[in-house]
Design a protein around this nucleic acid. Structure first.
Lengths: 356, 356
DNA sequence: CTGTTAGCGCGTTCAA
DNA sequence: TTGAACGCGCTAACAG
């Protein structure tokens, strides 16, 4: 580790006290033009950069925001992370903040992780991903009055800041589209964090385990059917693991029935891909007679075979809004909006329409 | 922001000096069983957690490692990031380190970003991604004697720690496989960071801009052809943007020729997907007569249509090795190996063999 | 205009 | 076995 240059080194070279250097660097000083120049040239010569740790200690703020991803099998969709993280880090940079990433595993020790995160003083605020219907993490952070923002909502008896996409409407639009294409038996492939449960048995009845966004999407499915006076057949509602394999298995279980559905609305693009693979393995074609839709709008969805009908989330914008809003909260500056709901966009492609 | 509990608060409650508390907490004290118990119960009651910023300042180490991703269009493949980052963060956690993520954009200001990163004292070491053939970042870090490790090698006149995959051999194996399948005209679709250049004109001759791993893969391609006495046709070597779109465009340019190739070895799975889409749009089938291969072995590659022949990188292991090695370097502890080269694994699927 | 004193929370002396 | 003094690098408040 190279020796670090400190204020005192600069001060020595410039022939002033180091406190004066500090003032000049922070533009909080009335100094003669001469000493200012001496100081800045010493800074340049020594390539001095202020120690952010010392600054943090003294200022009681780290200019760092935390971001927790839930390890594998839950939380954000793979191909999103890059884009989300990049947009968050870039947005943070614009406010001169850094981003610290932590991985948390749902379970007993999870709250300990959060406690450590917020009580050791290494971050000024936290971005929480993958909210559940009853998310204790949010309740905890709120109770501790720690600045945070959630990517996704939750059914809590409290207000908290969030950025979310209207998953209900997104799925509603998908189902309406499928109905418009003439489908009568539309399956819904939901998400479950753990190994696939069978039919309509959520992996656990515990609301604190159920993904909020998956729940919203399912509500959108049910509402759309109801709005068109179509029956809700519990046998057509599955939940699958979050990745390709889950969709594959769901498809197997659906397609081998005597009366399989003619359309499947999947809760993620990756799941839809797994689903489509199973379809092809059975020698069938994905298209108007057996429609498959995804959710997320990952870039890849345009390049699958057939290209996937999906709902696109404005992921870059989400990252920016999360960071910008959180920074406002941290700095207690004026805030246009603490709760932001974005509309997703239905993208219709050949996986539901065929090649016409 | 809630008020923070400090050592002094604990000391007051336990009725001892705060220095004593510090010793007990760090297990560096001979104290009576009685005071020890009083202290720990005070810690519990107050839910005291040591302030890591203060610790960092005093100890001159932050227990934080930095990870720089190159923003969009370069660097690590999308679907990898989640897995790599997760494995890195988890591995770091085992050493009680955190991970700070930065985004850097290749260009003039890039080195400033690195200077800031290492001179402001916020990280103890750095993991550098997306190395180029002549990577000035590595030279700079090395010259500054800042602890770092690269994901990927570089052609520098110096030794530095890295974890890399043998991309040369990986691509070599792909080409041998294609040759064994009877192909005589095998195209190579390389990677270029910027908008696609035409033929064999690297976006720039500047080695500091050329991706090292892409170069290695191309060398593997050339070596395999040579080993089988096959001619090297410059017209069959393209470079494409790193994502799906690039593969799509490369395919368009290849397939519309009078004598198109019968196989295409792509430098990434995403590129291969774009390629395959273009093939299908022309009413052709990907398979033994028009083979396409990828590189990376992202989970998705098993679910494409047809499933993609690819080279799988042990990404989780890479993340762990990067972190473990870097921590050894930071702490100057014994080190089994500073330069680690992992063998990738060829996975043959139907995109080159067809459905038998 | 500039330097001095003080303290952020902690770990490490060294005395008591 | 415990506590007092000191300093990590910096900024803030005040004194000169």
């Amino acid at each position: 580790m190279p020796k670090r240059v400190t204020l005192k080194d600069v001060a020595a070279l410039a022939g002033v006290s180091y406190q004066t250097v500090s003032k000049v660097i922070n533009h909080k000083a009335q100094v003669t033009e001469d000493t200012r120049r001496r100081i800045w040239s010493a800074v340049e010569e020594l390539r001095y950069r202020p120690n952010v740790i010392a600054r943090s200690l003294q200022g009681n703020r780290t200019r760092t925001i935390g971001f927790t991803i839930r390890s594998m099998s839950q939380g954000i969709s793979d191909p999103f992370l890059n884009e989300l993280l990049t947009s968050m880090v870039e947005a943070a940079g614009r406010h001169e903040y850094d981003v610290l990433v932590s991985v948390t595993e749902p379970g007993d020790r999870e709250m300990n992780t959060y406690e450590r995160l917020i009580k050791t003083g290494r971050i000024d605020g936290l971005i929480v991903d993958g909210t559940t219907r009853r998310d204790e993490r949010l309740a905890y952070l709120s109770q501790e009055k720690f600045p945070f923002i959630a990517f996704g909502r939750s059914e809590l008896d409290m207000d908290f800041p969030f950025v979310d996409v209207d998953n209900f409407t997104g799925m509603y639009q998908v189902i309406e589209h499928l109905i418009a294409m003439g489908h009568q038996r539309i399956a819904f492939v939901g998400l479950s964090p753990e190994p696939p449960s069978g039919h309509d048995q959520p992996a656990s009845e515990d609301l604190s385990q159920q993904s909020f966004c998956a729940y919203e999407r399912r509500r959108g499915y049910e509402a759309a059917l109801a709005a068109h006076d179509m029956p809700l057949d519990p046998d057509l509602i599955l939940s699958s693991q979050i990745r390709e394999e889950g969709g594959y298995q769901a498809a197997v279980s659906l397609l081998d029935r005597t009366t399989p559905p003619t359309a499947a609305a999947c809760c993620s693009d990756l799941v839809a891909l797994g689903f489509m693979r199973a379809v092809r393995e059975r020698g069938m074609d994905v298209g108007p007679r057996l429609a498959v839709s995804g959710f997320d709008g990952i870039p890849l969805s345009a390049y699958t075979h057939p290209p996937l009908t999906t709902v696109k989330q404005p992921i870059k914008k989400i990252g920016e809004l999360l960071v910008n809003t959180l920074v406002h909260i941290i700095e207690s500056t004026e805030l246009p909006e603490r709760q932001i709901l974005l509309m997703p966009e239905l993208i219709v492609r050949q996986s539901t329409t065929g090649w016409a």
